[in-house]
Design a protein around this nucleic acid. Structure first.
Length: 585
RNA sequence: CGGGAUUUAGCUCAGCUUGGUAGAGCGCUUCGUUCGGGACGAAGAGGUCGCACGUUCGAAUCGUGUAAUCCCGACCA
């Protein structure tokens, strides 16, 4: 491929509004062009990377029994109304009407559509299992698109859906997808972590999230060197609290003027935050029920409430902090900042973290602005309905695997999920089983953020000169650079080398532009093709220079040896990329 | 949803305080020299200063509104 026929608008400087490394680099290197906030054009180089990633996915998913399909991006709202997601999905769903005023939407995911197809076309368990997938644009009206391709309003996604007659079948499909995902990400040379999650609240019985550590990642990954990995929402640590031993003192109300936070109260009372109990008032509600139930959560002042754990405990679909009005109404006109469990009525469920259980003579808000209680004790002064783990783990604590916990940011690149029969029940996707009885089809759903993968890979593979693509998904394998295109011996050698390498099956880009060497080298580094072939002064002797982008390693070879040497170098580079990854997981 | 910032040439920015209808560097075009790590010289092209309304004889500049873009935060009582 001639570079003069490509559109590669490289820039000396990154646009001033780019923040993330991958965002800046991909714009500078001429891969992507921003059309609008959260909407990106993939220029020729990005398109080639995307094609390679997609083909890698196809390869591995097909191996796992997947078959490719394509759904419309524009969808009728009716099935989404049946599953209620038309109403519950929130503002991220693009809703629109067609000319007959029929409600439509732009698909953010396709559970309904695939379930509908299976419902109408598969009537017998003998036709199962099936794993249907597509690689296609998805639409989500993100509140805040950011970081280049990381969070956008339209993005490319692999989404697969498995249909089986029973749970055992689902487990097989799920495991096959997990295996395929690992193969895909391994081949891409990505560093990633697999996060296992227990059953979610909505009909699922298991999920794994694949997350690539990177500074701009929006997940907090809790992990250990022993292999433990979890979301902050799900992470647990060993309880290390010790029962405090002290004589119970008299409950006393103290003035703490102006103290609204734990730190302010701690200062005012001369106590450590860990001896202060903060009390958070939440409103918990379930789907389809209007009246939320108040839940008070007690926590050491230096801990953070984990709302997922609280929601699970009270079996709530929605959990939110109580509004000022609600607090005032339930707690005698008190305001946030001075809440506490003393004297709280039976209508409020009181949960307390395990670490509160071991405290004696604790301080807490008095439900009266400007006052805190000190020397409060459980049972004697206030009621606790249930103790449990309701806090976020902290770095350095001991994980369930016995190793110290570390935190890192991660980019969610893939997710697999055991859906169960939720959608098939609602949409009526049933087949006859071997007993001749109608049975709900058991589903799993699987997703990979394809366009987001570019960001993840670039975040992990770039240096100050530009991108450094892994060989498996680089837009080209080899960048041939005739240093001076006006010198016939250089140009003709470069051309013949390009043809030879292309014949050998490589993707080759030849820089046939009438640019000076410095410009070509700088652009080449920026673009990040794994191997560069420089055809320069020694062209007349039939000698060229090979240079690896990642290591900078350079060797001179005779033209007769190029194809052979290139093969060795690229294979070695691919091995290095994959071993780098496996040592990391 | 809350807060902050920005918007002038393809990119990075200056000019605005003290109104007089626009500049630099890079990039782009042409010619010449140069030619293995972002060359040099000469001559050019390119902008209704985000948009609207207002103030004024006159607005990139002052006022009001609006839009777009980016960043931060989203309740820890």
């Amino acid at each position: 491929m001639k570079q003069s026929r490509m559109l590669i608008p490289t820039l000396r400087k990154a646009p001033s509004d780019a923040e993330a490394l991958s965002h800046k680099m991909m714009v500078r290197a001429g891969y992507i062009y921003q059309v609008s906030a959260g909407l990106w054009a993939y220029l020729p180089l990005a398109q080639r990377v995307i094609d390679k990633i997609e083909n890698l996915i196809r390869q591995e998913v097909n191996k796992a029994g997947g078959v490719e399909t394509t759904m419309p991006g524009l969808l009728p709202a009716d099935p989404w109304k049946k599953t209620r997601r038309f109403y519950t999905y929130g503002d991220n769903l693009f809703r629109l009407k067609d000319r007959r005023k029929r409600d439509m939407l732009l698909g953010p995911t396709h559970e309904e559509t695939y379930t509908q197809i299976i419902r109408d076309t598969v009537k017998s368990y003998k036709k199962l299992p099936l794993l249907l997938y597509q690689i296609q644009d998805k639409f989500r009206d993100e509140d805040r698109p950011r970081y280049g391709l990381l969070r956008t309003k339209e993005f490319i996604m692999y989404d697969g859906y498995s249909f089986t007659i029973d749970r055992a079948g689902l487990d097989k499909e799920y495991d096959a997808q997990a295996k395929a995902y690992r193969a895909i990400f391994d081949k891409m040379g990505l560093n990633y972590k697999v996060i296992y999650a227990d059953s979610g609240t909505i009909g699922g019985t298991g999920s794994q999230e694949f997350s690539a550590p990177a500074p701009i990642g929006e997940d907090t990954i809790v992990y250990t060197d022993g292999g433990y990995a979890a979301n902050l929402e799900k992470a647990t640590s060993k309880f290390t609290g010790k029962q405090q031993v002290a004589e119970e003192q008299e409950l006393t109300k103290k003035a703490t003027p102006g103290a609204h936070s734990v730190d302010e109260a701690a200062e005012s009372l001369g106590l450590d935050a860990s001896q202060i109990v903060k009390s958070m008032l939440y409103m918990a509600s379930k789907d389809g029920e209007d009246k939320p139930e108040p839940v008070m959560v007690l926590m050491r002042g230096n801990d953070e409430v984990n709302e997922t754990k609280v929601a699970n405990e009270v079996d709530a679909d929605d959990l939110r902090l109580a509004s000022d009005d609600e607090i005032a109404k339930l707690l005698n006109g008190a305001h946030a900042g001075s809440l506490g469990p003393v004297g709280v009525g039976e209508n409020v469920t009181i949960l307390a973290d395990n670490y509160v259980k071991v405290l004696v003579n604790m301080a807490m808000g008095a439900n009266e602005d400007g006052y805190h209680y000190v020397n409060a004790n459980i049972d004697r002064d206030f009621r606790v309905d249930k103790f449990g783990d309701f806090r976020n783990v902290q770095e350095g604590e001991i994980a369930p695997d016995g190793m110290p916990i570390k935190f890192t940011n991660g980019i969610e690149i893939g997710h697999i999920f055991k859906l169960g029969t939720l959608y098939s029940q609602i949409l009526g996707a049933q087949v006859l089983n071997d007993q001749g009885r109608a049975t709900d089809v058991v589903m799993g759903c699987y997703g990979i953020g394809v366009s987001r993968l570019l960001s993840a890979v670039v975040e992990q593979n770039a240096d100050e000169n530009g991108l450094v693509w892994p060989t498996s998904i680089a837009p080209f394998d080899i960048h041939v650079i005739p240093v001076n295109v006006k010198k016939d011996e250089q140009m003709s050698l470069a051309t013949s080398i390009t043809e030879e390498l292309e014949k050998a099956g490589y993707d080759v880009l030849i820089d046939d532009r009438k640019e000076r060497a410095g410009v070509k080298f700088a652009d080449s580094d920026l673009i990040g093709i794994p191997l560069r072939v420089t055809v320069g002064k020694k062209a007349s002797d039939g000698i060229v220079e090979l240079k690896l982008r990642r290591t900078g390693e350079t060797i001179e070879v005779k033209k007769e040896e190029i194809v052979n040497t290139v093969g060795i170098l690229l294979k070695q580079a691919a091995n290095d990329e994959q071993s780098k990854q496996s040592s990391n997981e």
